[in-house]
Amino acid sequence: MIYFFRALSAEQLKLKRSLAMWMVLIAPLAVCFLYLMIMLKTPESYYGPSAWEGEIKSILSMWSVMMLPLYITLETALTANSEHNNQIWKYLYALPIPRWSIFSAKWVMNLFLVLSSSVVCFILTIGAGIVMRYVFPETGFVHNFPWTYALTVNGKVFLASLFIISIHTWISLNWKNIIIAIGSGMVAAVGNLTIMMSEKWGAIFPWTLPFYAYAVEDVNLIQIYAIALGGSLLFAIFGSFWLSKKQIF
């Protein structure tokens, strides 16, 4: 276990001054800023007492359906590319450390990056509502912020995204060509838009799970979490095993 914590500590240092670190702020900021613009244009839609819930749900829709899958694709590609681009693998694999520790640390760091951006998205959601409260005091944003609801739905989205993180961590570490990492994420994100319409497939397709976890009623949440968490863990173990066996040419 000591090897894992050492590798994690090294991963944390590698993020310094990296684009991956900036993306933690940029991705949620883009979504929340865009939605704030929409709210400022149509304040009348937020006159009721459920203004906060409406805002949270709308931002989460933009986040979970489009931005989150693309963000995960980009972050995993960026963290893996710092190894691919600088030809680090031959050096890392010649160090006296077990290879699984490299994959597992990278996986946990990717989870942390997605969790961090989810927290930033949560904070910016509150910020956008506060801006509305001051610009349009007649809207429902004067009511108290629904902490329990907001934390619950954001938590669901994050948990349901774990499977995608594992898949993309493996893809981006396994293939040096960033086109494969980015391309697979884009195809999945577009597929997401189609598959989410199908109740049958939407509840099992990894990329639609974040949306289904909080937005679709009468959905079997246990099944969703079983797929997301179980799939994530199994894929992480598979990825770790796969990359440990990999030869570095």
Binding site: R17, N86, Y91, A94
Partner: peptide, 17 residues
Amino acid sequence: LKQIGTMVESPSLYPNL
């Protein structure tokens, strides 16, 4: 590998650090 130091082809460095 604990007893080995290595540089294979070009040095493996992180340019952002």
